[in-house]
Amino acid sequence: MKPYQGKTVMVTGAAGGIGRRLAAAYGAEGAQVVVTDREGYGGDEIVKDIAAAGGSAYFAAADLGRPEEIVQLFANVDQTYGALDILINNAGFGIWKSPLELSVEEWDSVMNVNLRGTFLCSREAAKRMKAQGGGRIVNVASTRAAMSEPSSEAYAASKGGIASLTHALAVSLGPDGITVNCISPGWIETGDYDALRPIDHMQHPSGRVGKPGDIVRACMYFTSLDNDFVTGTNLTVDGGMTRKMIYEP
């Protein structure tokens, strides 16, 4: 039997490079996958790909910036599968703009999807997991929670909030048998990996740029049904970049 046979897994932001790989991986491991993204972003195609590979998946469209759509999303899951065992909060986006020019509306749009959306999805999932006797929640943050480039304020703040939200939820939901962990990816190339330059790989202590599969493996570790002792953890998956001292010549 496959490790996730009979389990229901929701992946938010499933149309993106990392989300697509996560959905496919859980489908290949026997899970019933709830593929979630905005309408028109390719969710139906992901479901077809998972089915073609012998897996089971269902597309439920939702804009996580709208709380009412999140509530409806989970109601749809109730009607379709009647259970939710694992939630992967992967959805997120950024607006790269000078903090002197970033509008309140732009700030709110990033925070509402990335941070508030993660909280609301976790809240709705936890209600169901508690009733079932437990579950797994994994939040996808970023190394930008700890380090930044210019004009990334809203994105960095949202990802820092996700990292903090993770340990708060882990403490609150622990008595219900729910583990909550976080993955902070570094440079994960979701496009043409062969187009990367040698210097792109060399700047990583690991000797290479990351791939979506690196995040998949980390996620599988946190969601293992036997792994109930690791919770409240933020795992950095960045090839060692955030541990590298850089001196300007």
Rank of each mutant, 00 (worst) to 15 (best):
D44C: 12
D37F: 07
I137E: 02
T231F: 09
R38H: 09
D214S: 11
N114S: 13
G40W: 00
I246L: 14
M10E: 11
E149V: 12
V77E: 00
I178N: 00
G54P: 07
I86L: 05
E69H: 11
G40D: 04
N227H: 12
N76V: 00
R243E: 13
A24N: 11
Y4D: 04
A125K: 03
C182Y: 01
P67R: 07
Y247I: 15
A23F: 03
G213M: 12
M220R: 15
R144D: 15
Y193S: 10
S206N: 07
Q5S: 14
T118V: 02
Q132Y: 12
M1G: 14
I178V: 15
D214E: 13
Q32L: 08
E124L: 08
F93N: 10
H204E: 08
G239E: 01
G213T: 08
E101R: 15
R144W: 09
L173D: 04
A125Y: 01
A51H: 08
T80P: 04
V77W: 00
E149Y: 06
D176P: 10
H167A: 10
M241R: 09
D226Q: 10
S184Y: 07
E189R: 09
H167V: 11
M220H: 15
K127L: 15
G55H: 08
A146V: 11
S148E: 10
V110P: 02
R20P: 03
D228F: 09
C182D: 02
T231E: 05
Y4R: 06
K2C: 13
L100F: 08
D192A: 05
V9K: 03
S224Q: 10
A154K: 04
P185Q: 10
L115E: 15
F119G: 01
R21F: 14
N89H: 08
T12K: 13
W187N: 05
W187T: 02
N90R: 00
L235E: 00
V216M: 10
G186Q: 03
L22G: 01
N234P: 02
G54S: 05
V209E: 15
Y155W: 05
G13T: 00
V230L: 12
D49L: 14
V237G: 01
V237D: 00
R123C: 02
Q132M: 14
M220V: 08
G13F: 01
T233G: 09
R20L: 09
L100Q: 15
F229S: 12
N89I: 01
L115D: 06
E153W: 03
L225G: 05
A57R: 02
L120Y: 08
G161V: 13
M220S: 14
V110T: 07
I18W: 01
D200Y: 02
V34C: 04
K244P: 04
R66G: 06
I215F: 02
D226F: 07
G92K: 03
A163N: 07
T236E: 06
K2L: 13
A83Y: 07
M245H: 15
T242Q: 06
Y81P: 12
Q132A: 08
S103V: 09
A146I: 09
E106R: 03
L235W: 00
S152T: 13
Q132R: 11
M220C: 10
G55F: 04
I46Q: 01
D108Y: 08
C121S: 06
H167Y: 11
F59G: 01
A91M: 04
A75M: 09
R197H: 11
T190S: 12
W96L: 13
N76W: 00
